[in-house]
Every structure is written in structure tokens, then in C-alpha cells.
């Protein structure tokens, strides 16, 4: 995997390579973990976001079904951003925490807040 990564680097110009002395994705297991963090963690993030965004749209006066459609559209972009971001932090643990943790927090908030005033 390391050699694969090197090849990947060679896709960039020489300039890029000199800036990338330290990289973190080494070995197949750690690569799998990183993909899982981006895809599964990112999914949880989008899952929580969609619920919370639906609630927010509804609370500002949209009909529930429209708030939900809007949240789905935004949710696709949020998931996209989450997948991309998952590859950015230096440590994979950080990616997991940010994505899955953020998703759980938003989901829990939606769960509680939707029952609170109802």
C-alpha cells in the first residue's frame, strides 16, 4: 500500500511531493480503516444531519414534508463533504470521532428536541 501511495503521489507535480513528507495512510488495514471512517462515519454524520435539518426547517415554518425534502438535498452535499473531509485529518481516529461523533450528537439532538415541545 505504501508503494501504491507513492505512485499516487507521482501523479502530482514535483512541487506537491516536497510538501508531503509526512503521510498517515500506511498499510492495507489502516487504509481500510480510513475508508470506513469516511464512508460509514460520513454516513452517520449525514444521517444525524438530515434529521436535525428537517427539524430546523420545520421549526422555522416549512411543512414537515418539505423540510424533509430540503434536508435530503442538503444531506447529499453534507455526506459528500463528510467523505472528503474524512481523508483530511492526520489521524483516522480523529476522522471517526468527528464524523460518527458529530452524527450521533446531531441525531440525539433531533431525537430529543422533536419530542420536547411536541
Amino acid at each position: 500500500m505504501r508503494s501504491e501511495y507513492r505512485e499516487n503521489r507521482s501523479c502530482m507535480t514535483r512541487n506537491d511531493v516536497s510538501h508531503a513528507g509526512h503521510r498517515v495512510i500506511i498499510g492495507p488495514l489502516s487504509a481500510m480503516n480510513r475508508f470506513a471512517a469516511a464512508i460509514i462515519g460520513g454516513y452517520l454524520f449525514a444521517y444525524g444531519f438530515t434529521a436535525l435539518a428537517t427539524l430546523a426547517g420545520f421549526r422555522v415554518g416549512l411543512p414537515y414534508s418539505e423540510a424533509q425534502v430540503l434536508a435530503w438535498m442538503l444531506g447529499a452535499f453534507v455526506y459528500l463533504g463528510a467523505i472528503l473531509w474524512g481523508f483530511v485529518p492526520r489521524s483516522t481516529m480523529q476522522a471517526w470521532l468527528g464524523l460518527a461523533g458529530g452524527g450521533a450528537a446531531m441525531g440525539a439532538a433531533a431525537f430529543v428536541l422533536s419530542r420536547w415541545t411536541a
Binding site: T50, A51, P63, A76, R115
Partner: peptide
């Protein structure tokens, strides 16, 4: 294409907030 199946992929507005979702379905 993703939006067409959004209800399958991201059901959280109905799963996490079921009482509110059901009540609003009736209102609408």
C-alpha cells in the same frame, strides 16, 4: 438519482423523529 431513493438511504427524519413525523403527516 440519490434523491429519488433518499427515503431509503436517509430515513432519519421518520426513524429518529417518528412521533413528530406521524403527527405532521396527519396535519398535511
Amino acid at each position: 438519482g440519490l434523491l429519488i431513493f433518499a427515503g431509503l438511504y436517509l430515513p432519519s427524519p421518520t426513524t429518529l423523529m417518528r412521533p413528530l413525523a406521524k403527527a405532521q403527516e396527519l396535519v398535511e
